[in-house]
């Protein structure tokens, strides 16, 4: 199961500037593990020490917020686009 993950500007220091990366995983949890294996440290910016999604970062599979689906257990179909959208406050 290969999915593409859109990386926001703020996390591109982990992906050497890449804005979109391909990783494997059948659920969001597997996708984040696979992402962290390629780009160490990035998972910790999305998931907290208790293993829960951080409250100021939203993760979308397609156009749906996983908080309203199965959270980290949300299925990620082959070819799914996953977006990580962190809160920013600039104006």
């Amino acid at each position: 199961m290969s999915v593409s993950v859109r990386v926001p500007t703020i996390l591109r220091t982990y992906t050497k500037g890449e804005s979109e990366v391909s990783v494997d995983g059948a659920t969001l949890s597997e996708v984040l593990d696979s992402l962290d294996a390629s780009f160490p440290g990035i998972k910790g910016r999305i998931v907290d020490e208790q293993g829960e999604l951080r409250r100021f970062v939203n993760v979308y599979v397609g156009s749906e917020d996983v908080r309203f689906a199965e959270g980290l257990g949300t299925a990620t179909a082959d070819g799914a686009q996953i977006s990580v959208i962190p809160a920013v406050a600039g104006g």
Binding site: I10, R54, R55, F56, P86, A87, V88, A89, G90, G91
Partner: peptide, 16 residues
């Protein structure tokens, strides 16, 4: 966004 990020985790435009 139910909660703000902890201070220091997300830079402001003045910093970033």
């Amino acid at each position: 966004y139910p909660e703000p990020p902890p201070p220091g985790m997300v830079p402001s435009c003045a910093e970033g």
